[in-house]
Design a protein around this nucleic acid. Sequence first.
DNA 1: CGGAGGTTTGAAAAGAGTCAAAGGTCGTGG
DNA 2: CCACGACCTTTGACTCTTTTCAAACCTCCG
Lengths: 253, 253
Amino acid sequence: MAHSVQNVRPAMQAATVISIRDLQTRCSRCGIREMCLPVGLDADALRKLDGVVTARTRVRKGQAVYRAGDAFTALYAIRLGTCKTMVLASDGREQISGYHLVGDLLGLDGIAHERHECHAVALEDTEVCVMPFDHLEELARAVAPLQHNLHRFLSREIGREQHLMLMLGSMRAEARLAAFLLNLADRYRMRGYASTEFVLRMTREEIGSYLGLKLETVSRLFSRFHAEGLLQVHARTVSKLDLPALRTLAGIC
Amino acid sequence: MAHSVQNVRPAMQAATVISIRDLQTRCSRCGIREMCLPVGLDADALRKLDGVVTARTRVRKGQAVYRAGDAFTALYAIRLGTCKTMVLASDGREQISGYHLVGDLLGLDGIAHERHECHAVALEDTEVCVMPFDHLEELARAVAPLQHNLHRFLSREIGREQHLMLMLGSMRAEARLAAFLLNLADRYRMRGYASTEFVLRMTREEIGSYLGLKLETVSRLFSRFHAEGLLQVHARTVSKLDLPALRTLAGIC
DNA sequence: CGGAGGTTTGAAAAGAGTCAAAGGTCGTGG
DNA sequence: CCACGACCTTTGACTCTTTTCAAACCTCCG
């Protein structure tokens, strides 16, 4: 299996020289900061947060950002790319618990036991910003808006999972897939991408795992949705999503 | 429907007089503080936290601590009793997302949007401590161990929900019920109660809702577990749980 | 261009849901 | 203290969704 990303700062670094790495890890210069942890922070706070991001790491498709059982040291913000998180049962079963896009924070479940509870794996070549958590906590004590952002991200993750639980616990297969597609459409839209056309970065099996379904069921549903004119699907590309019809199917009134 | 609990501090209160309310809301004197937010805090920090708890409120069986849509102002710690949390779908479906015991924190999902996303309802007469969140954040900035505890509770909730998702997404009905009973047994044991005998505070329908099953399925499973000697069940009292056998059934190796 | 990995589709089986009816349990009020 | 009623639970018979097993087909990367 792929090795986890290390969040080691280069050993020696002259304090007064602005290195390329420094330039590359600045939230204050980052184009996606308004959909990431720094959202809404003022210039002063941003400057301080720049000091927390120790690295911006490239994670290749299939490689792990971290693995379940790894010591928890940092949170990871997705700057570019897509990741999945997978929870593990003690008997080896594993299930995809999240499909994370640009601006999402990874590793929040690791704080409680100082150990990551799931794998986080890149679904395409990805770049993550590494934020050592003790340093982040320290800064959060000094900067109230940052503290509140952190709390909001933690809380949002709880809400996200509750939503998923509702889906897994009380929706039928077709409603789950419709809700999944709508959720993606929404998140792509919020990030400025087309909401009725995108490339799924997951296999049918991964989508099934996320939705609590078997890959054959997912495949059949895509075929049926296609036949019913709810979308076009060709391999992993979906397009021409009929969002209102999908909403009806998902039971979203 | 029952009204939500108000967390209003009595309007006027002489600063130097220790009122009965003050005495009643002190974490520093609370018997369950080591399984609640103050876990591990030193005397000084405890004293400061005393000032955050504005009230200790009685919530009668069936009454709501808060309801979905209520403005989020505070977290609630269960001092006595049991609560369920229920998430709501836009089409009116509702699902139980949590079964909360003494020492658990309620309201964590409300931080993100400053609005509670679920109902929290007492399953028996219950007492909750009200902790206004802005005040708690303020204190967390001053007291690092409290800050870390808050982060751990938030993170633990994320982990708890991931566990539940795994259950809803990839376990069969019998394994879900076994895992549910084992989880309860564990949590009662941690709180110093018997782990092989307890009273369920939920109806079959509520258990089913929590596990993504219909009430008839839950009832049949209880009957079958009883017939197979895995437990004794009489109405809501379960006893003589065969924990190892339940573990096998739940797929916990 | 070959092959591994991913996808589609069919047929049969299993699991859980639905509908229905009867039997318990518990709290309230007489 | 008992009886009533509301609500909860159990059980059976049947239905329907989803899974399982199997085979063939695509697609994309090296």
